[in-house]
Simulated scan of single mutants.
Amino acid sequence: MPSFTPESPDPSNAELLSAAAGGDQDAWNTLVARYGRLVWSVARSFRLSPADTADLSQTAWLRLVENLGSITESERLGAWLATTTRREAIRLLRRRNREIPADEQEEQSDEGADGPEERILVDDEYRQLRAAMAQLPERCRTLLRVLAADSGASYAQLSAAMGLPIGSIGPTRARCLEKLRAHMS
């Protein structure tokens, strides 16, 4: 396997992972530059505070460090990072729900609402949206969450993370939104 050099025009993920596992900081920096926006966008899609989003992003990168030598499908590194970030976010949210007393959770959900009528309408809309999203295939849910995060992730990064051809992301998004509209009706 050829070794990574910072001058390489487009090193493969396998080269970068191998070099990073060997302690090469330039290889690690290249991985972060290549997938950092993707990790950040998946983390942001969970609507956490900026501090929690940053912590979640760092945790995802830590998981990569811990697994540098065990990733066998290096061409699917983007998907691995997206999945890892999602799993860490879910773990964080579950832990947070266990730590916050129920009465404080209600107070937090009340923030920003004008009155009881508006809260009921907003809660109902969110409930309908969550129910409609739950009926979508996982691929649609993931794509819509990442795109809704307005992360600036490029179609190339989305393509690598989700295993979709670049040209099919827009049409897939349109089909997913159409399915979501149908479920909302």
Score class of each variant (00 low, 15 high):
3 S>G: 13
6 P>M: 04
9 P>L: 07
10 D>S: 15
12 S>M: 03
18 S>Y: 08
21 A>H: 11
25 Q>D: 15
26 D>H: 14
29 N>H: 14
32 V>E: 05
40 W>K: 14
40 W>L: 15
44 R>V: 05
44 R>D: 10
45 S>W: 04
45 S>R: 03
46 F>D: 00
46 F>Q: 04
49 S>K: 00
51 A>I: 09
54 A>V: 07
60 A>S: 06
60 A>Q: 00
61 W>Y: 06
61 W>P: 02
63 R>A: 05
65 V>K: 14
65 V>Y: 14
69 G>S: 10
70 S>F: 11
71 I>C: 01
72 T>Q: 11
73 E>R: 13
82 A>L: 02
83 T>I: 06
85 T>W: 04
86 R>T: 08
87 R>Y: 05
88 E>V: 08
90 I>F: 11
96 R>L: 07
96 R>C: 04
96 R>F: 04
96 R>W: 05
101 P>D: 09
104 E>K: 13
107 E>P: 06
109 S>W: 10
118 E>P: 01
119 R>N: 09
120 I>V: 13
121 L>Q: 15
130 R>I: 09
131 A>Y: 09
132 A>L: 01
133 M>T: 03
134 A>F: 07
135 Q>V: 04
135 Q>S: 10
143 L>G: 01
145 R>S: 13
146 V>D: 02
147 L>C: 06
151 S>W: 02
152 G>N: 00
153 A>T: 09
154 S>Y: 00
166 I>Q: 14
167 G>T: 05
167 G>I: 01
175 R>P: 07
177 L>M: 12
178 E>K: 15
184 M>K: 08
185 S>W: 10
